[in-house]
């Protein structure tokens, strides 16, 4: 059997709120499977169901051939779990945290110390082994929490957004480590809301939003969709609805959306579009108040893939944005 995880019809209601809506997918043994979606998409909820922490409302989860609802015990021994928040015991030292986890996961007594030492060295924490974790930085805690998740050499490792909030250096260390674990045969289930991270790491990516999966494919093939929803955002003075058709007529623009005082121009090639926008402003005697290029947002990727109109859905969950998008949307035919 080649699948590490098989999920069918998985659903979770929190009261009336439908957080995960009948999703089905498989994760193959030995792959890095990305679970990509914006905030509130249902990623953590799904991962918590896969790791027995949350009871599904409906649906079936089979891990390594065991039905999780009926037979969780053998599966739990093979799973490692790195949650969203580094859940380490801050009153204990790094060493004590690892030893405790080793007992919980039944690492044989004779192997515990050696494993802990090896991990602490790999993660650059060996010098700090006897320091209480309350004195650790965020990155060190994250590394320790990953070390704790793999001390029993799991064959299936779940990571919930392992890198946000870390500096580039720490994030790279963690990504390298994920690759290495995978090369050694560990199946990885990686939850993230960073498109770039999914691109860098994953063999296949599922895109989830509002509790539903829009697509599962290789990052390479999803990239086309990512590219189509890049954009240039411009604010002009004086502003007016009349700019809409004119901006949309610029070469390379696929869609224009009015957002407050800004126009968002979707394009596959933002850098080529920038000078055209500037020229448009010059030719019409307009002042460019602001001009930005934006990478693909997950919401947009999701809409693009599901064939809906980009820019029409509420965007308050968009990462880093929080802006409400206008509805003055046009699509070039």
């Amino acid at each position: 059997m080649d699948n590490a995880i098989e999920v069918s019809g998985l659903t979770k209601y929190y009261g009336d709120l439908l957080a995960v809506d009948h999703i089905s997918f498989e994760v193959r043994r030995g792959e890095i499977f990305g679970f990509l979606g914006p905030n509130g998409a249902g990623k953590t909820t799904t991962q918590r169901m896969l790791t027995t922490l949350l009871e599904p409302t409906e649906g079936r989860i089979i891990i390594h051939g065991h039905d999780l609802a009926r037979d969780p015990y053998p599966v739990k021994r093979q799973m490692g779990l790195v949650p969203e928040e580094s859940n380490v015991y801050t009153e204990l030292t790094a060493w004590e945290n690892l030893m405790f986890t080793a007992i919980l996961y039944r690492v044989p007594r004779s192997e515990r110390a050696a494993r802990a030492r090896e991990l602490l060295e790999t993660f650059g924490l060996w010098e700090k082994r006897d320091v209480k974790v309350e004195n650790f930085s965020k990155g060190m805690r994250r590394r320790l929490s990953i070390a704790m998740a793999i001390i029993h050499k799991p064959t299936l490792l779940f990571l919930d957004e392992p890198t946000p909030g870390l500096d580039a250096q720490s994030a790279r260390v963690i990504r390298d480590l994920i690759r290495r674990l995978n090369a050694e045969g560990t199946t990885i289930f990686l939850t993230t809301h960073q498109i770039e991270e999914a691109n860098l790491l994953c063999d296949r990516v599922a895109i989830i939003d509002h509790g539903r999966i829009a697509a599962i494919d290789t990052p390479e093939r999803l990239k086309a969709a990512f590219r189509r929803v890049q954009s240039v955002e411009v604010a002009l003075e004086p502003d007016g609805q009349a700019h809409g058709p004119a901006l949309e007529a610029l070469p390379g623009v696929t869609t224009t959306v009015k957002m407050g005082d800004k126009w968002r121009l979707y394009t596959e090639d933002p850098s080529a579009l920038l000078p055209r926008v500037v020229r448009y402003a010059e030719e019409h005697g307009l002042r460019v108040v602001s001009l930005n290029t934006l990478g693909p947002s997950l919401e947009d990727v999701f809409l693009e893939i599901t064939g809906q109109q980009v820019g029409v859905v509420r965007h308050e969950t968009e990462a880093g944005g929080g802006k409400q998008r206008g509805r003055g949307m046009r699509r070039r035919q």
Binding site: T51, K76, P83, N87, T101
Partner: peptide, 13 residues
């Protein structure tokens, strides 16, 4: 609250 309970609940016991 600290999330450490998940570690205990997910453990094989």
């Amino acid at each position: 609250r600290l999330g450490t309970y998940d570690r205990l609940l997910a453990a094989p016991m």
